[in-house]
Simulated scan of single mutants.
Amino acid sequence: MLVATAAAVAALLAGCSTTPTPVASPTPPPRTAAPSGHYFSLEGEHQTQEMVLFALGLLDTGYRFGGRNPDAGLDCSGMVAYIVENISGRRLPHNAAQIADRTRPIEVDELRPGDLVFFNTLKRRHSHMGIYIGDGRFVHAPNSRGRVRVERLANRYFAQRIDGARTLLTSN
C-alpha cells in the first residue's frame, strides 16, 4: 500500500510527464509508543498517507496570515490543521508551536510521508511548519511568494532553520 501511495504521489508531482517506475524503499525501523500518551494522534498510517495526497491537492493555494480555509487562503499551521480536521474530524490548534506541543517528537532521519517538519524562521522555535511528503521534500504555506508549494529540506534556507520533526502517529 505504501509503495502504491508513493507511486501515486510521484505521478502527481510529475504532472503530464511519464510516470516513473516505482522503486521499493527499505522498510523504516518501527516507531516506539509515545512516552506519556498525551499526544494527538491519527488512527493509522493510512491517514498520514491521505495527508500527503490532501496537501498535494492544495498546491498553489494562496497564502493568508491566519488562514485556515483554502478558499480564503492558508498559513502554515492553518494548512496542517485544515488537512488533519478533514481527514480525521479532529481539530488541531492554529499555531505551529502548539501543534508541536501536541505531537510526538521524532528524529529528522525518521521522517515518513505525513509527518510534520518544523522550522525556526522568526528567531523562535516552531515558528513555521510543513507536511513531509517523502524524498526529502515537504509541502508548506509560506508567506514569501504567497502560494502553497513543495520545498526540499536540503534547501539552504530551510536546512539552516529546521528545528524538529514530529509525527501524528503514537506508534507504528
Rank of each mutant, 00 (worst) to 15 (best):
P20Y: 14
H38M: 06
Y82T: 00
R149Y: 03
L116W: 04
Y132I: 09
I131W: 09
F118N: 00
E85A: 05
G62V: 11
G37K: 01
H94I: 10
E43V: 05
A55Y: 07
N120C: 08
P35D: 05
G66R: 11
P28V: 04
D75L: 13
V23I: 13
N95K: 11
P29D: 15
S36I: 03
Q49F: 06
S41L: 11
T27P: 00
Q47T: 05
T19R: 15
G44M: 08
L58C: 11
L122T: 11
M79A: 14
D109N: 04
F40Y: 01
E43Y: 13
M51C: 13
Q98V: 09
P29W: 09
M79R: 14
T27D: 12
D75R: 13
D71P: 01
A97C: 10
D60H: 11
I131E: 05
E110L: 01
P142N: 15
Y132N: 12
Y132W: 10
P105Q: 05
S36M: 00
T48Y: 08
Y63S: 11
P30K: 02
S25C: 02
V84D: 03
P28D: 10
D71H: 11
E43R: 13
V117T: 12
M129E: 12
G136A: 12
G78E: 10
S144P: 01
L59R: 13
A81K: 08
F65G: 04
G57S: 04
